[in-house]
């Protein structure tokens, strides 16, 4: 017991350097144990699992947990990035390095139909997400025959996620039927599938955004620099601050001009759809402090959630992750 105390103190000392309150360690340990349990359980019971890797902070945490779960072996599944060709350059830069460091195969899938039709967020609105992400994901899962896909979604992100199971069954065709989800009791997960069914698995279900940042700090994880404030070229459009990540691909509307603002991102997706927040939080400690004062929730800046009421729920029934 004494040894355990010493370990706890050592971790605490390391964490204090980046401003993680000691009170967090207890529940971070509990969340970590639960997530690792979920990862191992699905790997033990499913034929061919895959981890969706979107290069965001949640993906960083999920991949780290997978490394811990299977250490000293590398995680026994590949990573899948469903690429839209519209992610931030910083994200592409980090993606390949992260997979290499974890010792896992990285599969990148781009929907060939979307590519051929030149689907983009400026001209095609909701079709962009539907084709690149929803359809792209279904194609990739079908093509490789994956029967379970880990995703980094959390229950605190959005109301319809709060009722999502940890292991969520998708009917043939990848549709989500919220009325036909299996009850989940204790730490027992039913990972069985009938022919044509697949699973979505959310090991971070019970984490909050703040938990994720505390854990990133405690474990010293690398995340995309876009989460930290810096002067960046931006335009304001439809009430969102958008970063001009690639000027050549961003047509300006009449009256718009590119302004340098000090901003950061809470949540990362396609750059023309990810709203930035004005912020001075340039370090991990600043980000955590900002969040503890927090006035906006995380998906606030996500344009796709705001298309209509219950937008997320409708997307999920169609197969969006």
């Amino acid at each position: 017991m004494q040894a355990r105390l010493r370990e706890t103190e050592a971790v605490t000392a390391a964490a204090r350097a980046v401003g993680v309150p000691a009170a967090c360690h207890a529940h971070l340990d509990g969340l970590e144990a639960e997530s690792i349990h979920i990862l191992r359980e699905v790997v033990a019971e499913c034929r061919r699992p895959v981890m969706l890797y979107s290069v965001g902070k949640d993906s960083a945490v999920m991949l780290h947990l997978a490394r811990k779960a299977f250490f000293p072996a590398p995680p026994p599944f590949p990573l899948l990035h469903v690429d839209t060709t519209w992610k931030f350059r910083d994200m592409y830069a980090m993606r390949d390095a992260a997979a290499r460091e974890a010792g896992v195969e990285l599969i990148v899938h781009r929907n060939p139909d979307a590519l051929a039709r030149g689907i983009n967020p400026f001209d095609h609105g909701p079709l962009h997400t539907a084709m690149w992400k929803t359809e792209g994901l279904k194609q990739a899962l079908d093509r490789h025959g994956f029967d379970a896909a880990f995703g980094g979604a959390r229950r605190d992100e959005e109301a319809s996620r709060a009722k999502e199971r940890v292991v969520s069954v998708r009917a043939p065709g990848h549709r989500w039927d919220p009325k036909r989800q299996r009850p989940e009791l204790w730490s027992l997960y039913n990972c069985q599938t009938a022919p044509g069914e697949t699973l979505r698995v959310f090991p971070l279900s019970n984490w909050t955004e703040l938990d994720v940042w505390h854990y990133v700090a405690r474990e010293g994880l690398e995340v995309v620099p876009l989460y930290f404030a810096a002067p960046r070229p931006t335009v304001e459009r439809d009430g969102l601050i958008l970063m001009v990540d690639d000027p050549a691909r961003m047509p300006l509307r009449p009256g718009e001009r590119v302004v340098e603002r000090t901003i950061r991102f809470r949540s990362l997706g396609c750059w023309p759809l990810s709203g930035a927040v004005p912020s001075e939080a340039a370090t991990l400690a600043d980000v955590i402090a900002e969040m503890e004062r927090g006035t906006t929730s995380e998906r606030h800046g996500r344009a796709i959630d705001r298309e209509e009421p219950a937008a997320m729920e409708r997307k999920k029934t169609e197969g969006y992750f």
Binding site: R155, D156, A159, S160, A162, K179, Q181, P183
Partner: peptide, 29 residues
């Protein structure tokens, strides 16, 4: 807590919803 639109229309919660929150002292689920 009424997460799903079908439930909102009926005005009742029909499934288990989980929510994490914290007080100054403790994390709750």
């Amino acid at each position: 807590f009424d997460g799903l639109s079908a439930e909102r229309e009926q005005g009742i919660t029909i499934d288990v919803a989980y929510r994490g929150f914290a007080s100054r002292k403790r994390r709750f689920l």
